[in-house]
Design a protein around this nucleic acid. Structure first.
Length: 428
RNA sequence: GUGAGCGUAGCUCAGCUGGUAGAGCUCCAGACUGUGGAUCUGGAUGUCGCGGGUUCGAAUCCCGUCGCUCACCCCA
């Protein structure tokens, strides 16, 4: 690594997920797919690259994401393209572009993949980060909100996570939110001088953000500010009550947090977030909400939607912290052969096992048996299959259980059946 | 974009108020020429992030620079 030419390194905020960690990522992704599938969500894959305008119009031209965090460039034909900072806009774009709404009913879609935001990296935050998300398009019924939240808590439970809290709120709609913002702005004028410098600034630029302040000294004042849930219009009120009732029916534990404000412009009514401990300052594991006006903002028909995005990088931190789920890093068998005559039969055995789906490794060079077993041990092999002159002569291979150290003799043809019996139905 | 901390072996780090590098782990080999994980013995690897300055002498002090980390902002 230390040569005259400095080695090229990965781009700031991006990282390599090495084989030591990908098994756990795969486990988490499998679990998510399984749960989404059970709730009848179908996968959608959209491009990583989109027209810049898509995000300006959906996420909001004045948001931090659009004003300073996007990876945007001019394509050769001078079109402005952007590496997606999130996927909801893309999913809705695809929904409109392919006229999925004409099929009637509700569309339940999920996705997973990398997103890009040019922020300063820190714990749980990267410039290329991964999201697992889902969207329900075509209905504004509160049951949808509740069902998705139920699904999320189920998924987290499946991942062995216990310490998390579901926070929900309603941010109203285009009718009632402006009224609230005015009320809030006025209330802030009265107490502004007692708040932190950041909040004094936010009181002018983005009053809703004050609610999200984490400065301890400000909390007392913030707690006394007007709450948006008290200013909802009749329709929004009814919707929020419906969500609450459904959550209660389903036994989903939640907490109303009137200060939960999401940063993307397209949210309406229900917003939510699940936080977890052990994630550093970025304690939001996932977030989402309703976006009933997004389709129209993107030039589609009026079509309500509800969705969420899980920060997979943060989810992985939480899963590791909980320690209840682990990735598979063992192999079923290591074929240890010794003596030139043993290689051919050993390779044949390995080929047979592999083609039946067993994860198998075999040494490529003649080495001492102790070395082979040492390698088998390092690879976390469940069994070592020993093939040498004696075994070839007797027609029975030694199969050593690497956990107990016990050995049995097994005829070559019976090895697959032996592994199946010992390791269960499926290949490792 | 702002702030703070840190950059010494593959990894985790030690190296006091300057005298030109060490430990543990890992790795390799052997003890044990057909039996791993334990133990013991031996061995390998560093432009001490980079550049400059102070000094007889710098890993150590100073300046700059790059990188990483954490936090702010904001979000997943």
């Amino acid at each position: 690594m230390t040569k005259a030419l400095s080695a090229i390194r990965s781009v700031k905020g991006t990282r390599d997920l090495l084989p030591s960690e990908t098994p756990l990522w795969q486990r988490v992704e499998e679990e998510a797919r399984r749960v989404f599938d059970a709730y009848n969500f179908r996968e959608i894959r959209t491009p990583v690259l989109e027209r810049t305008d898509l995000f300006a119009r959906s996420v909001g031209a004045d948001t931090d994401i659009v004003t300073k965090e996007m990876y945007t460039f001019q394509d050769r034909d001078e079109e402005s393209l952007t590496l997606r900072p999130e996927a909801t806009a893309s999913v809705v774009r695809a929904y409109i572009e392919h006229r999925l709404f004409n099929e009637g009913g509700v569309h339940k879609l999920y996705y997973l993949g990398p997103m890009f935001r040019r922020e300063r990296p820190q714990k749980g935050r990267y410039r290329q980060f991964y999201q697992i998300g889902a969207e329900v398009l075509g209905s504004d019924h509160p049951t949808i909100d509740a069902e998705v939240l139920e699904m999320l808590t189920f998924l987290l439970a499946r991942l062995g996570l216990r310490e998390f809290s579901l926070l929900i709120n309603s941010v109203g709609c285009g009718k009632c939110r402006p009224t609230y913002v005015e009320v809030l702005r006025e209330a802030l004028q009265g107490v502004k001088s007692q708040l932190c410098a950041d909040c004094q600034r936010r009181a002018e630029t983005n009053p809703l953000r004050v609610l999200d302040c984490k400065v301890e000294a400000d909390q007392a004042q913030i707690a006394r500010l007007p709450r948006i849930v008290d200013y909802l219009c009749a329709d929004c009120r009814k919707h929020f009550d419906g969500v609450e009732a459904e959550l209660a029916q389903r036994g989903v534990a939640y907490e109303i947090n009137p200060r939960l404000v999401r940063g993307l412009d397209y949210y309406t009514r229900t917003t939510f977030e699940i936080t977890s401990s052990g994630l550093g300052a970025q304690n939001a594991l996932l977030g989402g909400g309703r976006y009933d006006g997004l389709s129209e903002m993107l030039g589609g028909p009026s079509s309500p939607g509800f969705g969420f995005a899980i920060g997979q990088d943060r989810l992985m931190l939480a899963v590791e912290h909980a320690g209840n789920l682990k990735g598979e890093n063992s192999i079923a068998a290591y074929v240890a052969w010794l003596g030139d005559g043993a290689f051919r039969p050993a390779a044949e055995l390995a080929r047979g096992l592999r083609q039946q789906g067993w994860r198998v490794e075999i040494g490529y060079e003649p080495v001492k048996l102790s070395k082979s077993l040492s390698v088998a041990n390092k690879l976390h092999a469940r069994y070592a299959i020993i093939i040498g002159e004696g075994e070839l002569a007797s027609g029975r291979y030694q199969i050593k259980d690497m956990g107990t150290g016990r050995q049995e003799e097994v005829e070559p043809a019976r090895v697959p059946a032996y592994l199946k019996e010992k390791l269960g139905t499926g290949p490792v």
